[in-house]
Amino acid sequence: MTSHIKPAILMLLFFTVLTGIAYPLAVTFSAQTLFPRQANGSLLGSNGQPLGSELIGQAFNRPEYFWGRPSATSPTPYNGGASGGSNQGPTNSALIDAVQMRIKALRDADPSHSEAVPVDLVTASASGLDPHISPAAAAYQISRVALARHLSPDSVRELVERYTEPRQWGMLGESRVNVLKLNLALDQRLK
């Protein structure tokens, strides 16, 4: 039995070099050559002054911005350094209370609205960093944003449509709106 100790240690050593050093270095080199933007975090804006990542959402609370998914990361929402969901179960009263608060915040910010709220706008995402909301959740907020920015709802709707991504290849995933890009566009900071 002990005759296997030497090959076990040596094999582990070689596989460590092969799969732990050579392989990730080869992938890094190839990815940095072929897809430098994506491999470094899909940053928006110029290289020296990034405006955020296209893939990582940010927290928005003011009426003039579109709000993203609620985020359960700690200590602050949308903490890109510590991802995670709420892990609240469906019968947990804390979940129901949280959803109630979120609905109230939406209604308070736009009292003219009374219809049912799209579910993704009041439930925490899995990563706490979800960059998207559903087109329905964006549509729900158009009147508030337009009012706060003194814009016509139609012009805001047009912008929302421009930042709505369809299903990938017309069939994969769900259609969605990138909240950070939309808000940057509203601020006219995105080309």
């Binding site: 998914r69 969901g85 709420s86 892990n87 609240q88 469906p90 979940l95 579910v119 993704d120 439930t123 925490a124 995402s125 899995a126 990563s127 979800d130 998207h132 909301i133 559903s134 995933g173 769900e174 969605r176």
Partner: peptide, 10 residues
């Protein structure tokens, strides 16, 4: 049930 799910996956 979107609690704990991502919008892009639905």
């Amino acid at each position: 049930n979107m609690e704990g799910k991502e919008t892009r996956f639905g």
